[in-house]
């Protein structure tokens, strides 16, 4: 039997209802993907919170760095014209 501490970490994503996106709900340790799915079921959807689970080994998640956030997201800060509210509609036209 392998050391419990050696079990890899998995990130868990749950789809609340058919048609919705899978959303990250947390993580857990498991030997393999199959076991991770069972653990995720027992850990995260004991009350029918989901109809579908994805598990991904945490080491496969590549994340942007919080510390670089300013430079990383800077290009979208000065473009108010990407939003509909930037444009004024003439009188009599209210629905667009």
């Amino acid at each position: 039997m392998s050391n419990r501490n050696m079990m890899p970490l998995f990130e868990v994503f749950v789809r609340g209802k058919r048609g919705l996106d899978h959303i990250h709900v947390g993580s857990l340790h498991a030997h393999d993907a199959e076991q991770a799915l069972e653990y995720a079921r027992d850990t995260y959807i004991r009350r029918g919170e989901g109809v579908s689970i994805w598990v991904v080994e945490s080491k496969h998640i590549h994340a942007s760095q919080e510390s670089d956030a300013q430079a990383f997201y800077d290009p979208m800060d000065d473009k108010p014209y990407r939003h509909a509210t930037y444009y004024t509609l003439p009188d009599g036209v209210d629905n667009m």
């Binding site: 058919r18 939003h83 509909a84 509609l89 667009m96």
Partner: peptide, 22 residues
């Protein structure tokens, strides 16, 4: 599902497209 979700995202982003043209 994937088509419907792409449409939701696209509709949200496109809200300014028609207005800028108008």
């Amino acid at each position: 599902g994937p088509y419907a979700r792409a449409m939701v995202r696209i509709c949200k982003e496109e809200s300014f497209h028609q207005r800028q043209g108008y």
